[in-house]
Amino acid sequence: MALLSVKNLHAYYQTEVYGISRTVRAVDGVSFDLFPNEIYGVAGESSCGKTTLIKVISGSIKPPLKALEGSVNYTFGDYSVDMLRASQDELRQNVRWKEISYVMQGSMSVLNPVRRVIATFRDIVDTHEGITDKQKFLEQTRAHVNRLGLPTDVLDAYPHQLSGGMRQRVAIALATVFQPSLIIADEPTTALDVVVQRGVLQMIKEIQAISSNTVLLVTHDMAVHANVADRLMIMYAGRIAEEGPTETIFNEPLHPYTQHLIRSLPMIGERSTKVSLEGAPPNLAHPPTGCRFHPRCPYVMDVCRTEVPELVTVKERHRVACHLVKEDSL
């Protein structure tokens, strides 16, 4: 049973200023499922629709963003929610933080700089469950922080006293107070150094292993995905280019974009010349016709310019949207 089922989702930014309307097709026909007990990675360049996708599936759809088509359905045990139709009150009471929590890039902006860390914990617990017994809250929070391997004195520190990695881990501790079914991590380690990045990602992996929940990890860093994700989605210009188990994606990438992404990664101990793709990621206000990758694709054919390739399943759990692949396998 899927935890989250997204079907044919179209989410556009629509603006109208002085009668000039503009539509940015940030998420255009995306379907995928998330299952319990997995780490699902989403990779893609900036402005490929990663963040829009997260906004929609976490239920923060505010104008100019509109979800025009498709469905986003969650099943938490025997409780299910339709994200596109649920009221904000219902989301606040039953879903946010309890079932879905969010770890974002700048942990500094999550924590209030003029209050101790414990105050932020108190706010969150008070908002979602209410605190009746202060002593019990303190004990539970200490136990929670301890379980994640953080020293309890971080609770009495101000955010500026903590190192960047420790702040990010505090943000993760905040996101896991209620043992949510889904943790969405949006570029959680982008601003951090490699050593700290490793520590933070290890913590995310450990939490996932202990509580068997689902982690949606969004980052542009393919090397991080290689080491953390179980399954991987490659997004390009608002669509899914390829999806599959991490090993399959790295060992047998089928989409030319994925192949390029993996081939262009520099590695210590290997010095062959790496090249960039020609051209630039497309502007989603005026995306290319047909396959959106065709202006940059080294194997472009006539059909790519006119027809949108469908996402076809080539092997078990491995889906690719490319005309090349379609011809080979069918």
């Binding site: 490699v194 990045q197 490793r198 090397a223 290689a226 080491n227 090993e247 790295f250 060992n251 210590i268």
Partner: peptide, 10 residues
């Protein structure tokens, strides 16, 4: 700590 871009180094 540099993550190797290959799943086998996990």
């Amino acid at each position: 700590s540099v993550p190797e871009p290959a799943p086998k180094e996990r």
